[in-house]
């Protein structure tokens, strides 16, 4: 009964709209994200990105329009959606007074992993992310770059099909950012869909496709190279500014 509708898309959105009072935060947006794609969701501050992500994660109901995440309806199946997505925000949502290991165990527990699976998953993921040497440290004592990796690890412990990253690299130095993105690529290669917002336009170039949002509408969607050619600009930052300043 709860089987998802079989579709090749991880995210399907049609004419999705959300109003707050008379303010239209998200204004009839339509887009699809394919399975295993790294999708960059760009926009100025206040363009409606966070509202869209909240609707896709089942935290906020749309005013109108259709939306499916991993085949589940965002109006009626938010519980199933939550089981299948991972979410990480710029604030990292970690407990600073817990050990790194305790944070991992906590998030694993939330997603209902049994002890055996949890231990194995933590083992394999700290190997992959290099968090191993920090496992027994207090979270507040590790550098920001490591916190970011920890937050990512927490978000993927339950092996979600799609990962939402809301400005995951804000305030993180270039080296940590590179390392973070190489982790993201590994995830995508293994088939996880990645839906990411960022203010670093250089990072936008790492995405398979981009959408640029402004005042609640999607101004354009395309591969970075395609967009640059279309608007005859040399960088995505210039494309962004051209689209948003119009």
């Amino acid at each position: 009964m709860n089987n998802p509708v079989q579709i090749p898309y991880s995210v399907q959105v049609e004419e999705l709209t959300r109003c707050f009072g008379s303010f239209v935060a998200v204004d009839h947006i339509t887009f699809n994200v394919a399975d295993g794609e790294i999708f960059g969701f760009l926009g100025a501050n206040g363009a409606g990105k966070t509202t869209t992500i909240k609707m896709l994660c089942g935290l906020l109901l749309p005013t109108s329009g259709k939306g499916f995440v991993e085949g589940f309806n965002i109006y009626t199946q938010s519980d199933q959606i939550k089981q299948n997505i991972g979410y990480m925000s710029q604030k990292f949502s970690l407990y600073e007074d817990l050990l790194v290991r305790e944070n991992l165990e906590f998030y694993g527990g939330i997603y209902g992993l049994d002890n055996h699976t949890l231990r194995q998953t933590i083992e394999t993921s700290v190997m992959a992310t290099g968090l191993r040497e920090h496992l027994e440290k207090l979270t507040r004592d590790i550098p920001v770059g490591w916190k970011q990796r920890l937050a990512l690890t927490c978000a993927i412990l339950h092996k979600p099909k799609i990962l939402f990253l809301d400005e995951p690299t804000g305030g993180v130095d270039p080296i940590s950012r590179h390392q973070f993105w190489s982790l993201i690529y590994e995830l995508a290669e293994k088939g996880t869909t990645v839906f990411v917002t960022t203010h670093y336009m250089e990072e936008a170039e790492y995405c398979n496709r981009l959408s640029i949002m402004h005042n609640g509408r999607i101004m354009d969607i395309g591969a970075p190279q395609t967009l640059k050619e279309k608007y005859k600009q040399s960088t995505i930052e210039d494309v962004f500014i051209q689209l948003v300043k119009k």
């Binding site: 926009g43 100025a44 501050n45 363009a47 710029q90 400005e167 804000g170 305030g171 203010h199 336009m201 930052e237 962004f240 500014i241 948003v244 300043k245």
Partner: peptide
Amino acid sequence: TGVDPVSR
């Protein structure tokens, strides 16, 4: 930090 390219 956390500011979009236009504002930046």
